[in-house]
């Protein structure tokens, strides 16, 4: 949120809903986003330069006119600085139903989980292709919304293959929690692949953020429609 400008952010979210997204992840920008690749780093810098901050973020989100569930993705220091309870309460008040914090492992998530239970906000844990079985258990345990499946090692964005994903999804079959695949998802065929392998959803970040930064709103619609079609093809393949 805040890129390409604070006013345009609301419009962008509405376009994304219109294009078929089932959940919308809203980024609250942090000065030092260590889990993000170049595209989201640049977008975060632009948003911060435009004056984006958590107060403004919650105001903007409250004014959104969308029906799909919203999730906030941010880094732990912004949550901690605001006060964990206050942050979660503000999410709840603004209509945000899920919280995603990539730099908060389950070990350190006790306080935020308590606050999430109190204000009925969902929390998301992460697993990656090299997560150990013990850590998968922990991630599943904290995930009340969905489980974030990191498709491959590295940061968000980029175009490298998501091939380690298949094995990972097989290892996760036994868990009932909904599984959404992210990091490097940029094409309809990747969406099809991920869903056919057993994912319940895909998370498209950098591919859209890049277009938002370039104000290519028409293309956002097209890209998202094609990705959604990819997902549906994947689902069909899985059922067959």
């Amino acid at each position: 949120m805040g890129d390409p400008s604070i006013e345009e952010s609301k419009k962008v979210v509405e376009i994304i809903e219109k294009s078929g997204a089932d959940i919308i992840e809203l980024g609250l920008p942090f000065s030092d986003p260590i889990a993000d690749g170049k595209v989201i780093q640049r977008a975060s810098e632009r948003a911060l330069n435009a004056g984006m901050n958590p107060d403004l973020f919650f105001d903007l989100v409250s004014e959104l006119n969308v029906k799909v569930p919203l999730a906030v993705m941010t880094y732990y220091n912004l949550v901690f600085k605001r006060g964990i309870e206050r942050f979660v309460r503000d999410c709840s008040t603004a209509g945000i139903s899920g919280i995603i914090i990539p730099d908060l492992p389950p070990e350190e998530a006790g306080d935020i989980l308590r606050a999430c239970r109190k204000f009925s906000v969902e929390y998301t844990g992460f697993v990656t292709p090299i997560t150990t079985p013990e850590r998968i258990e922990k991630a599943v345990e904290v995930s009340t919304g969905f489980l974030y499946i990191v498709s491959r090692l590295g940061v968000t964005g980029g175009t490298t293959s998501i091939s380690p994903l298949k094995k990972l999804l097989e290892r996760l079959k036994q868990y009932e929690v909904p599984k959404a695949v992210g990091f490097g998802i940029s094409s309809p065929s990747q969406c099809e692949e991920a869903i056919s392998m057993g994912a319940d959803g895909v998370i498209v970040g950098s591919a859209i953020v890049k277009l938002v930064g370039e104000r290519k709103y028409k293309e956002i619609e097209e890209v998202l429609r094609k990705m959604k079609e990819g997902c549906l093809r994947g689902l069909k393949r899985r059922i067959e």
Binding site: Y76, P105, F126, T131
Partner: peptide
């Protein structure tokens, strides 16, 4: 202290 890092790094730290 603590370990506030993305999950990808946890196996390496362990």
């Amino acid at each position: 202290g603590g370990m506030f890092v993305p999950e990808t790094l946890m196996p390496a730290l362990e």
